[in-house]
Design a protein around this nucleic acid. Structure first.
Length: 427
RNA sequence: GCGGGCGUAGCCAAGUGGUUAAGGCAGCGGCUUGUGGCGCCGCCAUUCGGGGGUUCAAGUCCCCUCGCUCGCCCCA
């Protein structure tokens, strides 16, 4: 095999798949516009330290999944594994918070060096939301509602919103101590991975999928018991807010997220139809992150949505997939003969200037071939220009989608006629 | 990083040691050098991801390697 291939886990998006992506992006953009959320674009490449400090050294993402290399200046650089750290860095760097709370969204590729499987790639795409500067539980509710409504509007069915609270940093420290002590005492009932995690990332032991570990954990002290009154009240406010919006919630006390910066609200929107990688959208509150990265103390909440997983879900829903279908061509120009061929590009350009989608056949092939391609192009009309038409400055217009007599009209009148046809809801 | 499944044309795919590697879709040419969608005819893999080995004989068996895929882990 001498031919070149894309790198493992790096996937091409071919023209046939693009329309659904553009559809999702357009719907997301519109939801963000309505919610007064502005786009931010940051570099794909950042200094490694940003992620190490932001996401947490003990996390898997930082520990083993980053694309990290030295650039020519010997700086350690990393392809972003997620969007929050970059967005926060940019906000701090440009002093945006001095202008008040920031409502931001971003989209684009992320990179994690993992083994690819269904719904998991090394380069994948996320759309994410970050609401910075507001501590109130209502902003948690708003952030979640934006994600929920966006997914609903796209026509994704069968989703569940799983919700938990991780408590305040103090709650967590207190709980962590209790949990570690308990885990140490019940070490024998845990799988090796979980045993190893007792000291590095004990909270993650809670959502282990190993049945034996889960059985052991049934008697473990719950995080809820370590929550302060304030944290508990806050969690209740979030739940009440979601209930008021009639967004159904599934409380999941085992939901712990993999990135260190989360506190209080943590949530995931999952689908049972995605195989092992069930999370379409995940996020939570990260009140400590901005300060940790050198900014002013700033409460924040955000989420990220996995585009590939969303596309996977949408592909299972014919109605939603159809919504993303591209608009058909208005005109396909078929021509033959030197004089005729000279008229094609000027005609196409005039049509395009008027907003029509026009393709011309420049193959010089037999009419039969050109008509075949015209048909396949999906165009509504074919314009035919041969020697006779060129001499008379006319075109023969053929309706490719309905049986109707061909008509002949001046070449100068064609574009107007088509524009009118389209405006008139020509069925 | 660990485990299972798989790799035959652009795509789907038959083939389970024995002469020339089915078939379908797409593509190209023709029937039709001014008319597509239907039909018919023809063309389209010196070679089965790559390398090595076993054998008189390998797409088929063995080893290595690369890739894809599903799961573990982790997460979007």
């Amino acid at each position: 095999m001498a031919s070149l291939q894309s790198l493992r886990g790096m996937v091409d998006l071919l023209p046939a798949q693009i329309s659904i992506w553009q559809h999702i992006e357009a719907v997301a953009r519109e939801h963000f516009r309505r919610a007064a959320v502005q786009e931010i674009r940051t570099p794909l490449l950042e200094v490694t330290e940003l992620f190490a400090r932001g996401i947490g050294e003990a996390t898997d993402v930082v520990g083993k999944e980053m694309y990290t290399f030295l650039d020519r200046g010997e700086r350690s650089c990393t392809l972003r594994p997620e969007g929050t750290a970059s967005a926060v860095r940019a906000v701090i760097e440009h002093g945006l918070l001095s202008q008040g709370p920031q409502r931001l969204w971003y989209g684009g590729p992320m990179f994690r060096y993992e083994r690819p499987q269904a719904g998991r790639q090394r380069q994948f795409h996320q759309i994410g939301l970050e609401l910075l500067g507001v501590a109130d539980a209502r902003s948690d509710v708003e952030a979640i509602a934006i994600a929920w409504d966006l997914l609903a509007d796209l026509g994704v069915g069968g989703l569940a919103l799983e919700l938990n609270t991780l408590g305040s940093p103090d709650d967590r420290i207190r709980y962590r101590e209790r949990l570690v002590a308990w885990l140490e005492a019940h070490r024998d009932g845990l799988d090796p991975d979980s045993q190893a995690r007792i000291n590095t990332n004990p909270l993650r032991v809670l959502d282990s999928k190993v049945p034996q570990t889960q059985a052991t954990l049934a008697a473990a002290p719950p995080l809820a018991a370590s929550l302060s009154a304030e944290s508990r009240a806050r969690f209740e406010q979030v739940q009440a807010g979601l209930a008021a919006l009639e967004i159904p919630v599934q409380l999941n006390p085992r939901l712990v997220r993999g990135l260190d910066y989360y506190s209080h609200t943590a949530f995931e929107i999952t689908s049972s139809q995605l195989g092992a990688q069930a999370t379409v959208c995940g996020g939570g509150r990260y009140d400590g992150l901005v300060q940790q990265l050198g900014g002013p103390p700033t409460p924040a909440i955000g989420w990220a949505l996995g585009m590939e997983r969303l596309v996977l879900l949408l592909a299972q829903m014919p109605a939603a997939a159809a919504a993303g279908a591209p608009a058909p061509l208005d005109l396909y120009v078929v021509s033959r003969g030197e004089a005729a061929e000279a008229l094609v590009l000027p005609l196409a350009r005039q049509g395009r200037a008027a907003g029509l989608a026009v393709e011309c056949d420049t193959s010089g092939a037999a009419f039969g071939k050109q008509f075949k391609r015209a048909d396949r192009s999906g165009a509504r009309f074919a314009a035919v220009i041969g020697d006779a038409e060129a001499a008379a400055a006319e075109v023969v217009l053929k309706d490719l989608r309905q049986h109707q007599a061909e008509q002949r009209l001046p070449i100068a009148a064609l574009v107007d006629w088509l524009v009118q046809q389209r405006a008139g809801g020509s069925a």
